[in-house]
C-alpha cells in the first residue's frame, strides 16, 4: 500500500519538478542534488549575512513542499500555512545551526517542522538533545558529508522504503504520517500494545539495516 503510494508520490514529485521546470527556466539546471546545493547556499547566506533576498528565494523553493508535507500529516490549509510561517521563522532564526556536514537540508527542515508541530498542535514539551552538551560523545563513524555521499544516502532511503513488506511500511507510515503513538496504533489495529511494539521494532530495525546498506534483499 505504502509501497504503491511511495512510487506514486515519487512519480507526482517527478512530474511536479517537470512542471516547475516548464514554468521556470531557472529549474532547468536544478537537478535534485544541485537543488540541494542551492538550498544549502541560500541557507548559508541567511546564516552569515542575514540575507533577506536569499531567505525569500528559499521560502519560494521549500515553502510549497513543506506545506504539502504538513497537509499530508493531516493539517488543513489554514493550520499548514500557520505552521509553515513558524517553520520558516525558525529557519531564519536558527540558520547558523544548520551544518551541511551533519545533515541534508531536507533532514534539517524535517526536524524543525516536527518540533513546530509538537509545539503548536500538541502544545507539549519536547525535551531534546542539546547539540552543545559537553557530555556529547563523538560519533563512532563519520557521516557521508560530501554532496555525492549525501546523494547516495538519499537514493538508498528511497530504495529502503520500497523494500519494506506491506505491513511494516504501514506501521512506519502510521508513525510518521499519522503522528500516532504505539498505544493509539494498538487501539486502531486492535492488537495488543506489546505486539505493536515488537512489530514496529522489527520494521524499524529492518529499515535501519536497509538504510545502512547492511542487507540487500
Amino acid at each position: 500500500m505504502f509501497l504503491e503510494n511511495t512510487i506514486e508520490t515519487a512519480d507526482i514529485s517527478a512530474k511536479m519538478s517537470y512542471i516547475d521546470y516548464k514554468k521556470d527556466k531557472a529549474y532547468k539546471v536544478l537537478k535534485p542534488a544541485v537543488k540541494d546545493e542551492e538550498l544549502t547556499r541560500l541557507i548559508s547566506l541567511v546564516a552569515t549575512d542575514k540575507d533577506k533576498s536569499a531567505f525569500s528565494n528559499l521560502f519560494k523553493l521549500v515553502g510549497p513542499r513543506i506545506k504539502g508535507y504538513l497537509m499530508k500529516l493531516g493539517s488543513n490549509d489554514i493550520v499548514a500555512e500557520d505552521l509553515l510561517q513558524e517553520v520558516m521563522l525558525t529557519v531564519w532564526r536558527k540558520s547558523e545551526t544548520f551544518d551541511r556536514s551533519k545533515a541534508a537540508v531536507s533532514t534539517w527542515l524535517f526536524t524543525i517542522a516536527r518540533n513546530k508541530r509538537i509545539d503548536m498542535l500538541r502544545k507539549e514539551i519536547r525535551p531534546q538533545l542539546d547539540p552543545m552538551d559537553p557530555m556529547l560523545t563523538p560519533n563512532e563513524e563519520e557521516s557521508a558529508d560530501d554532496a555525492y555521499g549525501s546523494k547516495q544516502q538519499s537514493l538508498k532511503i528511497n530504495d529502503a522504503i520500497s523494500l519494506l513488506p506491506d505491513e511494516q511500511s504501514k506501521l512506519i507510515k502510521m508513525t510518521y504520517y499519522e503522528d500516532k503513538s504505539h498505544s493509539v496504533i494498538a487501539e486502531e489495529l486492535k492488537m495488543p500494545l506489546g505486539t505493536v511494539k515488537s512489530r514496529i521494532r522489527l520494521a524499524s530495525t529492518r529499515l535501519k539495516k536497509l538504510l545502512e546498506g547492511t542487507i540487500h534483499d
Binding site: T6, T9, A10, I12, S13, M16, D20, G63, P64, R65, I66, K67, G68, Y69, M71, K72, D77, A80, E81, L84, A103, A104, V105, S106, T107, W108, L109, F110, T111, A113, R114, S143, Q153, S154, I157, N158, A160, I161, Y176, Y177, S204, L207, K208, L211, E212
Partner: peptide
C-alpha cells in the same frame, strides 16, 4: 539520525501545495 533522514526524505517526496 537515520530515522530523521528518513523523515527528511518523506518531506522531500511530498507533493508541493501552493502557498497562499
Amino acid at each position: 539520525e537515520t530515522f530523521e533522514k528518513l523523515g527528511g526524505k518523506l518531506l522531500e517526496i511530498s507533493n508541493s501545495v501552493e502557498v497562499d
